[in-house]
Simulated scan of single mutants.
Amino acid sequence: MAEAVTAYLGLGGNVGDVARSMRDALRKLDADPECRVTAFSRVYKTPPWGPVEQDWFLNACAAVETGLSAPDLLDLVLRTERELGRIRMTRWGPRTLDIDILLYGDEPVSLENLTIPHPRMVERAFVMVPLADIAGDVMLAGRTIRDHAKTFRDEGLEVTEIELGNR
């Protein structure tokens, strides 16, 4: 593996067996020679976000050590989503699996198809609360992830008993 960078991913979905899709996605990412899953959060049941009426989501976060560039990691993530049946139809709509790159090392990325840190992530409990499970001390916008996560109250998140693996 080239020099490794720690990246943090957000995973979520609300169609089909989402927990299985998340487990399968983590296995696929870990199978890539340039990407190793090093940690994952608890799985949370979260209320839908956005203008489309839909079922509740399952959300989690994962840490990966990767030798891939940010654009190459995005390619791997998008390929993984497609291989697991993701079809992009409605923005913020129902989905089998969504994988977002939240953070990539300490450097911001600003490309036409990729912005890191993920835009508006600090406004979303379904991102910040699971991310605090595995990256609580990481700094973002002058505060730790843990401190950002503490600002969310009564957001409706519920910790589930779902396990993503044996790490």
Rank of each mutant, 00 (worst) to 15 (best):
S41F: 06
L68P: 01
F57Y: 14
T38R: 11
L74P: 03
P48E: 08
C61E: 00
Y44K: 05
L68D: 02
W49R: 11
L73A: 02
V64M: 06
N59I: 08
K45M: 10
L68G: 00
S69D: 02
D72Q: 10
D72Y: 01
Q54W: 12
A62Y: 07
P71Y: 04
W49I: 15
A60E: 01
L58Y: 15
A39L: 03
V64R: 06
L73M: 01
A70L: 00
R42P: 10
P51F: 14
Y44W: 14
V64H: 06
P48K: 11
P51A: 15
T46F: 10
W56P: 04
W56F: 10
V52E: 13
L68R: 01
V64Q: 03
K45D: 14
W56I: 09
P51Y: 12
D72R: 08
W56D: 09
P47K: 00
E53D: 14
A39P: 08
Y44R: 05
S69I: 00
V52M: 15
G50F: 11
Q54R: 12
P71N: 04
N59Y: 08
T46L: 08
A60S: 07
P47F: 00
P51R: 11
E65V: 09
G67M: 01
E53Q: 13
L68S: 01
P48D: 10
V52N: 15
P71T: 03
